[in-house]
Nucleic acid binder design. Sequence first.
DNA 1: CGATCGTTTGACAAGGGTCAAAATGCGTGG
DNA 2: CCACGCATTTTGACCCTTGTCAAACGATCG
Lengths: 239, 239
Amino acid sequence: MSMAKPQRAALKAMSTRLSRLAELSADELEMLQAAEREQRRLPARRDLLSEGEPIGGPRAVLSGWACRVRTLADGRRQIVGFVLPGEFIGLCQHRNPLAPTTLLAVTELVTCPAPRSEPGSGLSEAYARSTAFDDHYLIAQVTRVGRLSAYERIADTILELQDRLAVVDPAAAVRFRLPLTQELLADALGLTAVHVNRTIQALRRDGLLAWQNGTISFPDRSRLEKLVGYAPIRISGLG
Amino acid sequence: MSMAKPQRAALKAMSTRLSRLAELSADELEMLQAAEREQRRLPARRDLLSEGEPIGGPRAVLSGWACRVRTLADGRRQIVGFVLPGEFIGLCQHRNPLAPTTLLAVTELVTCPAPRSEPGSGLSEAYARSTAFDDHYLIAQVTRVGRLSAYERIADTILELQDRLAVVDPAAAVRFRLPLTQELLADALGLTAVHVNRTIQALRRDGLLAWQNGTISFPDRSRLEKLVGYAPIRISGLG
DNA sequence: CGATCGTTTGACAAGGGTCAAAATGCGTGG
DNA sequence: CCACGCATTTTGACCCTTGTCAAACGATCG
């Protein structure tokens, strides 16, 4: 096998997403693109970071999926959230931070460093907005797991994931690869894999979800949104 | 009854907590104490802020409890977290932020503005650490609601609340007032009030929880901690 | 072509929800 | 001090969603 080295397609999820989050200067854009060339590659199913461990500098995911996991003493697992292309790991304002969760590569992963920003700059605004989105995702996760039925949880999650993917890859708004096993979904949703399986079948039967070979699409997205009360996230006014 | 006007004891939860989170300069401390005199009082059971609404400047809670709520279209409610004395509302780095949750006063509430900090200052480090704690609380909340049994959820929550209260009020480490109805607890834990009630009775029967007239204590805290796998939060190394 | 991982199915169990009513507590006003 | 009204807690009976255990099925990979 030919490991590592460069790859053909340029990966630019970080700069793409950040420039949608705020107005960036030409300098900042260039800096980001330079950072995107310092890639680090990681095999699937590997921990990038363990809970309680000191965090290295902030990094962005350029391709692949990661998830943030809490594992209990008896082996129960809760996935607290996913990290998608263009999103960040370890964005943190204070000194000597420790990882609040373990970070697990769901698929093979390409990451790059997230450059430092000047206070008051466009880039720092973009980071701040990214952080605000992360916050919303966590809040949405609490609500999902706390108050939605299994049926609603699954739909709501996948709807959110589609929106997040589409920020960086417009094609995802039509259909997208979901690289999750039903067991991972279960761990994210506070369910068991068996029940996730049955519930997905129900969604399919109801004509609300198509999931073939790991590719997702929604036959009638707006009906589904209404049914589970999904609404896209807004973090700021005048935006 | 003698309502309102000033109050006897000086409220200083904000400066107390912040100075435990980082080394503050004398100037900063003074600024905080000045801010603590600009109090705003709010009756219990009132919204301070609604989901999706523009946020005013950041504020701290000086006394009383608030909670962050998501309400679904059909009336289901999820409490995403609590805000205790010394903790913040609307700490946010980006411009024109919208509230991600509704903010509800659980008890009567006294708040004050949270002064701006200079980048790189001790105060800004303290804010950053406070934010990191908020993050942890949210992550813990996901894990609780996603993977713990009712019994564990209740214990784990109350243990966490005790630790958080004790930051500002050492006496809370022995026993403290929990101003929550069983219904509020239920909405926080993704349970029903009826089930919360039965579960609390179980905790009492097991000699793990004493709850009389709204005052909580733990007859054997370390046993309880082990039983539910509770561990205090650490956000940073060398700290 | 076995091994392994993920999905699917079935039968059954249990944790927690629902509904309804009784009991308790508490602030208000007489 | 008592009486009322409301909110909260408590109890009981029953039900439903989701979990558990086990096995079969299907893909993918050395």
